[in-house]
Simulated assay, not measured.
Amino acid sequence: MQNPANSTVVSDFAELPATASHGLLRIEYRWVNEVAVNAPIAVFLHEGLGSIAMWRDWPQSLCERLGMRGLVYSRPGYGLSTPREHDVKWPVDFMTEQARDILPALLDALDVGMQERRRMWLIGHSDGGSITLLYAALHPNELAGAVAIAPHVFVEDISVESIAQTKELYETTDLRSKLSRYHADVDSAFYGWNDIWLNPAFREWNIASELAAIKQPLLAVQGHDDNYGTMAQIDTIAERVPHAQLVKLDACGHSPHRDAPGALNEAIAAFISRQR
């Protein structure tokens, strides 16, 4: 099946069995830079409204720069993966479920063994950055290191305000039409993300206390002009994970891989090269 936004890219699918936390899932995924067959794997975790298609060619270009093979996938509810049923609300701990249950199950389905996982890097953006942090905390012996780009560690007013504004744009402008190019069920994707972030109960969500369990190398990146979070997010990471390295990018908003790809790629490449 083809990705919604790119007719030249063909997705593969993995079937994940039902568990106590989720039903049977069909996950859209794609390998990039497949020529690097013996190289470490970089797993890319997309933002709250992201998908394989929304990454565009950044994972490919970064993997070529790093000499890695990349795994890109659309989380449940996004892209061409199993959509969220419209009457289902994401739970407050939905990102923990993604790190604890979904990603490990996907790696199992793709026969990514423990030896490969110990060489694996996670690279996550926004919600995907939070899932990256949680996976690193929950599975400290199953990865080589992690890169969290504009991650959320706790809920800030600026995040809620921007997400509320995005809802208004979705319902009153052509934003819905634009996003529909990247998701088979665009309302499933949008409202799954928007409803949980605007749920009053989610204001108490905070994973700072869990970060101390992260033992592997960690890079956290934030743009100074991010309208979804402040530097307090990655500063909190540094407080809880003393070995973490921070990069703060000028003239960069919430999406460094689009706003400042050169600076981001350089920072990631330099960081990972120091760990090898």
Rank of each mutant, 00 (worst) to 15 (best):
Q2D: 15
V10D: 06
F13C: 13
A18R: 10
A20H: 14
L25F: 05
L25W: 01
E28P: 12
R30V: 15
V32Y: 01
N33L: 09
V35H: 14
V37I: 08
S51T: 10
I52S: 02
D57M: 00
P59D: 02
C63S: 06
E64K: 00
G77P: 11
G77M: 04
Y78N: 08
P83C: 07
K89P: 00
W90R: 11
F94I: 11
M95V: 14
E97T: 14
Q98I: 02
D101N: 13
D108S: 04
M114E: 12
R118I: 09
W121I: 08
G124V: 07
G124M: 07
G128H: 01
P140W: 05
N141D: 13
A148D: 06
E156W: 15
V160T: 14
S162P: 01
T166Y: 13
Y170Q: 07
T172E: 06
T173L: 01
T173N: 07
R181Y: 14
D185K: 05
W193M: 11
N194C: 12
N199V: 10
P200S: 10
R203K: 14
E210I: 06
E210Q: 02
E210G: 02
A213W: 05
H224T: 08
D226C: 12
I234L: 11
V247L: 00
A251G: 15
P261K: 10
N265H: 01
